[in-house]
């Protein structure tokens, strides 16, 4: 299945790019509420810092999505000689972020993480279908291209992991006002004010 020609003008318009970016941003915000939100509140930050942290996380999410789609596009070109404008590819593949608008459902107790993975699978299947639609490749070729693109991005992330982590730490510290994320293992085990006073202990 390929895209009808009359759709192309719509998909290449600036409004389409803006709508795609907004969709990814909202998906990032929803996913941020579902995952990052828990960590932020666990770290006992103020409401303002919480909002800033979520905003920063959604902006980083958009950046990461753009880089992912760019590496996919590069992989499709290199592997299968696909000649599709990057704008068109971006707008079409961004539809894959639609299901992730429900990312906040990850907050549901016990079933939340499973829902999150379900949404990601759904999103990935939409990504494959949209790649097939925009490039005319088969599903298998699209899957190989998507895997290659993802590996390319992960490879770059691994190479740049140290500076990227330093930047992420800096952004975290700036937005939340806390030096680092509080992990579950770091939560207090003893409830202050009720411990028995033992001689020799301060």
């Amino acid at each position: 299945m390929t895209l009808p020609i009359e759709w192309l003008n719509v998909l290449l318009s600036p409004q389409a790019i803006a709508a795609a970016t907004l969709l990814i941003f909202l998906a990032g915000l929803s996913e941020g509420v579902g995952t990052q939100g828990v960590t932020l509140l666990m770290s006992r930050i103020t409401p303002l810092r919480f909002a800033m942290g979520l905003l920063a996380s959604a902006l980083l999410y958009v950046l990461s999505a753009v880089i992912w789609m760019w590496t996919l596009w590069l992989a499709m070109r290199a592997l299968f000689g696909v000649e599709v404008p990057l704008r068109l590819f971006f707008v079409t593949v961004s539809t894959a972020y639609g299901p992730l608008l429900l990312g906040a459902l990850a907050l549901l107790p016990l079933v939340g993480p499973a829902i999150r993975w379900g949404l990601r699978l759904w999103s990935f299947s939409i990504a494959l279908a949209s790649i097939v639609a925009v490039t005319g490749l088969t599903h298998w070729q699209a899957a190989v291209g998507a895997l290659a693109g993802t590996l390319l991005m992960e490879g770059a992330r691994w190479l740049l992991s140290e500076p990227a982590e330093a930047v992420a730490r800096r952004i975290w510290a700036l937005t939340t006002g806390k030096p680092h994320l509080v992990r579950r293992e770091e939560l207090p085990q003893v409830i202050p004010g009720y411990e028995p006073v033992v001689k020799g202990e301060r």
Binding site: G37, V38, L41, M42, R44, I45, P47, F50, A104, L105, L107, L108, P109
Partner: peptide, 19 residues
């Protein structure tokens, strides 16, 4: 139901955060 189910852990987190 979903909103209510999400509100419970959120209320715990909000209490924990000191809000």
């Amino acid at each position: 139901f979903i909103l209510f189910a999400i509100a419970i852990p959120l209320s715990v987190l909000i209490w924990w955060a000191g809000w």
